[in-house]
Amino acid sequence: MTTSFLQTVLAIVHKDVRAELRSRELVGSMALFALLSILIFSFALELNRIAREEAVGGILWVTVAFASILGLNRSLAMERDQGNLDAMLLAPISRAAIFCGKLVGNLVFALVVGLLLLPLMTLLYNRPVLQPWLLAALLLGALGFSTVGTLLATMTVQTRARETLLPIVMLPVALPVLLSAVRLTTSVLAGGAQEDWLSWLQILAVVDVIYLVLCFVLFEHVIEE
């Protein structure tokens, strides 16, 4: 046991980022999907400008959630198909470090897509989506999705149905994250008083912490073979 926990985590993140920089497989498809999704929502709500402006929070988060699912599926399927997961399990590193490494990698990709979405939505939906508190919301929301997503995707890539199963098992569990993030975004955009929506940010943070602890503990049961 020479490598420390932090070194292991950083090594896994480094590997994921480097593989991504070379192949541009994950973020590329996630970003394209996200762009398509907000365009489709924009067309679908075209007839009603007010409905479209009110739905911005929901559209943002549904898009982030689905783009994350897309990325998570690829990220974990790659690990499994190329025997990477087995190699990491053979290495003398703790399982918790594998979880944290994959989690940070997935979070980075989700954040890249989210950061791309914010200015785009500001342009396309004509709402001030790009603002500091919403960046905090994006960070916490993406963290929540990546946490449950990393755990559940590790499970679903080992099943028969694989890619189809992840959205089915992940969306209901990610509901608390989605609920508080949408609520927060909508009230920030509506220009409500800070004390009104700050509690949603707190709820989001608490949900994140609960899921982080739960998934951290449960992860070791998901990859033992």
Binding site: L152, M155, V173, L175, L218, H221, V222
Partner: peptide, 20 residues
């Protein structure tokens, strides 16, 4: 064996929707 393990993990996580 894996079926039982994964089911246990998901059963624990799924309880969050009950609390919600």
């Amino acid at each position: 064996e894996r079926q039982k393990r994964f089911a246990a993990v998901y059963g624990i996580l799924a309880f969050s929707t009950v609390i919600i």
